[in-house]
Simulated scan of single mutants.
Amino acid sequence: MALVQLARCVRPRLHRRRDPHLRVPAGGIVTTTQASAAAQPSTAAAPLGTGSQASRVLGVVVLVAMAVLLWLAFVASPRDAIQGDLVRLLYLHPALAWTAYLACFIATGASIQHLRKRTVGSDLLAHSAVELGAVMTLLTLVTGAIWGRPTWGVYWVWDARLTSTAILFLMLLGYLALHRIDAAPEVRSRRAAVLGVLLVPNVILVHQSVQWWRTLHQDPTLLDRNFDFGTSDLLMFTMVFGFVAISLLFVWLLLHRFRVAWLEHQVESAWLDDAIEARRAEALAESREAGAR
């Protein structure tokens, strides 16, 4: 137990306190020559990628779905009588916002699980979801600004919906920043998880902002019971298909990002184990030399 506690304290700063007699071979793992040779079989057995047969099939489905979506949005669908070609952004903007919400729900659930169980997998899942959530939220803000300039006359206003979405984006960036502070991995993960729990309440605030305050942003179209679905069949089909296609894209990206994070964790753990073994070998060699004298 004492060795485990010592390793946790040394781990984040190990690369700055490396013994000058240790060398860094190809691959970047701190080890001795013997440890490096012992590590070669495990390196050869490591997976060469993050894909599997199921993920490759999903990738093909995503590729086809995104191609169909772009064709529907920018070629097949007609111009709107009022908004003209600007309506084509609406095939992407709501779906991007939905995937940002979905990422926050996953991150909050995984953060709660990490605070309860302290599992590595839940922390990696939350971190992966937050990374994708930040990208989707940024794309939501950008596409909304492009749509808002000709519609409202400005790219940005301090509207309740826009402001709360910007706050959500800053919270996602804050989560990523907490994961990079100079502290032990357990401390970083725990602090980030606390912020991750607050993501869903802010998502609820973003979604309900158009109902709770006066805002330039329109009410949810798909949830409007008075919306006439029959007068714009292709528009509605393209919008719903956009939700499906971009959701599949999000799932595919999350799957691969989580696998990359898991491999990074495995490499980092192996690096720590090799460094500890190298120090044990050095201590043993020094004790033998002292005994020989």
Rank of each mutant, 00 (worst) to 15 (best):
R190G: 10
H179D: 12
A192F: 01
I181G: 08
A160H: 00
H217I: 15
H207Q: 09
L205E: 01
L162P: 00
D159E: 08
L205T: 02
G174S: 09
L216C: 05
E186A: 14
L168R: 00
L176M: 10
I167D: 08
V194S: 12
L162F: 01
R180G: 01
R190A: 14
V187M: 00
I181E: 12
A184S: 13
D219S: 07
V210Y: 10
R188W: 06
W156R: 00
L178Y: 10
D182V: 08
Y155L: 15
L176A: 07
W156E: 00
A193Y: 04
S164F: 10
Q211T: 15
L205M: 06
S189E: 06
S209A: 11
S164I: 07
L172E: 07
L198N: 02
L216S: 08
A193L: 10
R180V: 02
R190V: 12
L173R: 02
I167H: 07
S189K: 02
W156Q: 00
V210S: 09
L176H: 04
R188C: 12
E186M: 10
G174P: 08
V187H: 00
W212Q: 04
V203K: 04
Q208K: 09
L168M: 05
W158T: 08
R188F: 11
L162C: 01
L216V: 13
Q208S: 12
D182S: 07
T163W: 12
D182L: 11
W156K: 00
L195N: 04
P185W: 00
R180Y: 01
V187A: 03
V154D: 15
W156V: 01
P185H: 01
R180C: 02
L173P: 02
V197W: 11
L195G: 03
